[in-house]
Write a protein that binds this DNA or RNA. Sequence first.
DNA 1: CTGTTAGCGCGTTCAA
DNA 2: TTGAACGCGCTAACAG
Lengths: 358, 358
Amino acid sequence: MKAATIRDVAERAEVSVASVSRVLTGAGPVTPATRDKVMEAVEALQYVPHSGARSLSTSKTQTIGVILPDLYGEFFSELIRGMDLAARSLGYHLIVSSSHDDAEEASAAIRSMRGRVDGLIVLSPHLDAANLATSLAGRLPILLMNGGAGAGRPSIMVDNHGGAVQAVEHLIATGRRRIAHISGPTGNLEAETRLAGYLEAMARANLPTTVVEGAFDQASGLDAGAELARRADRPDAIFAGNDMMAVGAMLALQDAGLGVPDDVAVVGFDDVPIAGLMRPGLTTLRIHIAETGRNALERLVRLINAAGEAVADTACEVVRPELVVRPSSDPATHAQTTSGDRLRASAGSSPLEGENPQ
Amino acid sequence: MKAATIRDVAERAEVSVASVSRVLTGAGPVTPATRDKVMEAVEALQYVPHSGARSLSTSKTQTIGVILPDLYGEFFSELIRGMDLAARSLGYHLIVSSSHDDAEEASAAIRSMRGRVDGLIVLSPHLDAANLATSLAGRLPILLMNGGAGAGRPSIMVDNHGGAVQAVEHLIATGRRRIAHISGPTGNLEAETRLAGYLEAMARANLPTTVVEGAFDQASGLDAGAELARRADRPDAIFAGNDMMAVGAMLALQDAGLGVPDDVAVVGFDDVPIAGLMRPGLTTLRIHIAETGRNALERLVRLINAAGEAVADTACEVVRPELVVRPSSDPATHAQTTSGDRLRASAGSSPLEGENPQ
DNA sequence: CTGTTAGCGCGTTCAA
DNA sequence: TTGAACGCGCTAACAG
């Protein structure tokens, strides 16, 4: 009744377990005759190697862990999709662990990964957690995507500052002056860097700043948008710290009877799929999210394969967001986007398209 | 340089490995004195138990595998989010494996899970794969969510037929008569059941049917919507097989200069987050996606814990979708939805809200 | 209460 | 080319 082991196969095939192992792993010399006997037994017994046991003896799990703060929203799901695609093609499995708000939880999650994964990708927007990660992981290869706190460690980060500056400069260039910012939560590195970029660009242009703190989700964007809409010195543009808040803000503005972009322009960050589906389409800073995920995973695998020797890869790779102008900030783009091309482009802009989705 | 093992800890603490194990697992009697010695050594050596090895000896991995066709779109990400939340609170890890278009790929994925997981949740809209799953899994507890092909197996399925009927009846009740359907891809069980529901409801009302096949993604919804908009006998309502296609169709209609819902009403299926964020808000059939995911995981864990004995759980749990009327099908709801309440409700309608999202 | 030992299932030397 | 034996790191019996 129990699942067959390598020993059962060996007995039935009347060979040693070593031969079975050699046949199944493809390594080592094997006579066609014994190979056939083994394969026959494997078929008959419906044998499938126990990957846990294999891992223990090879000390390779062919699994990589992904630690992230949450799984909510399109940003993370796109990222994971890219990672999963890469993992599949490289023969790796993906084990995800989310909902790590604070550093303590995150480090516990990291700890529980030992012996379960060959490497880790850590997305932690909290500085503390990032430090903990590097120390707790021991000799486990780690790739940081924590928003910039991975000095001297292999990492990938988005140029949040540069992106924010681009956003603000775009708004200024299109004639906006009272530009408000809906920031991400305090303590979040990405959020703080984007805020800093906004402040710097505004200062450089000698414009007054307005900041409302959000929480990187739609609801907080809605609240912030509503608040800004009520103000006496209502802004003529809003730069939100991410797309989800931008979407919320846009709805709040519309609900308040304000036109986007006529009364208020809106710019987001990330270019999640929904950004191109909103009406008006949301101007944003495009990160090829899925592709970035794929890239991260591939780099980690490279790191794993080079374990020990080449510690040369200690660089921080920077992803430069690209400004995508859509109607939410520029009425001039309205015309182009009345055809379906925009949606198609939006859906198919990444090399990593899903197949057969439901 | 290598990570410390239980033996290293035992040596340093001057006790046996058994005592170390007892302290760490909490099982078995231990003197406070030895406990302290062990803990000291654990601290000093930064020891973390090797979960792979532990799994091998306990034959429990504390990991469950999720096999799904794709990771694209909000449906799956929401589902996984719910599962992940439940897994965390139950002390389980989640290993996801997607992009299994055909039955062969899916069964390969299932096979590779042996020895790596304690149970499996399989979402396969292909009947073949479902059958394969049940046979390939061996003695591994399995929960099917494949759209209805899990006769006699623990499974959860959505009442796709009933949902489709609800959608059509709603459209008829609001005065629509030329109701077209954008179906999911042929061969997909969910798609076919929803189509059947549409056909049946239309036949019952003595109305002529129009069906355009889509692929459950936005792009195909866009194409289908454009085609329907061009037709001489343009429909006055579209029921799409899922929300993503409904969104695409809505954009195509708007791009064609048609008003939603004035010229054409649109209804989707699933109630993914974006449904409530579209303008107009999309009428749809709500499945509490994340909650369903959580429920699935909890049930599988129950199955795992009862392994062997109670094979009583062989039921097919049915999730009944609930019609959520939004402006895309009913202008009358416009008024209520100009306030932010709708968004908030949409974002917070599930008990499973994410925290600290980015 | 503690230590010794035998597996868990597999890969992998090392002789033969 | 093959097979016997060892070890991966840990838990769980069983003695002491």
